[in-house]
Nucleic acid binder design. Structure first.
Length: 110
DNA sequence: AGTGTGACACTGG
DNA sequence: TCCAGTGCCACAC
């Protein structure tokens, strides 16, 4: 609604474009938006995405492949369940084969 | 208008 | 190679 909502909207757009069974990092999205230094802001935007159930925020993790944001989901292991449902192995909140399932918008999406 | 916070990323030891 | 500390930008109070 406000002028700065564009940033949030862009974050949502990128999150939606994440292919099934793939994940990306906040920094990758931030870099794609031109604010690589503001990767944290992407997480903040995702926090607001709770109103938009169309945003697969569970596909967005930190650069280490750690599900740092699972805490923000309803359940405790909901985020992990969703990722495993897409064929992504998650152990101890850590995505296995992260480099394999990693999806970089700056490369895949230009 | 300024300060504090944050679902991160990077550099140094 | 791994752990810790610092830096960054944008939003909320």
């Amino acid at each position: 609604m406000k002028s700065n909502d564009n940033f949030f909207e862009k974050s949502y757009q990128v999150a939606r474009q994440i292919p099934f069974g793939r994940v990306t990092s906040y920094g990758a999205i931030a870099k794609y938006l031109g604010v690589a230094r503001s990767a944290r802001m992407v997480g903040w935007a995702m926090n607001a995405s709770h109103n938009n159930d169309t945003i697969p925020a569970h596909r967005v993790v930190n650069r280490k492949g750690l599900l740092t944001g699972k805490q923000h989901f309803d359940g405790t292991n909901l985020m992990q369940q969703l990722l495993e449902s897409e064929g992504i192995k998650v152990i101890e909140n850590q995505i296995q084969n992260f480099d394999t399932v990693f999806w970089d918008p700056t490369i895949e999406l230009i």
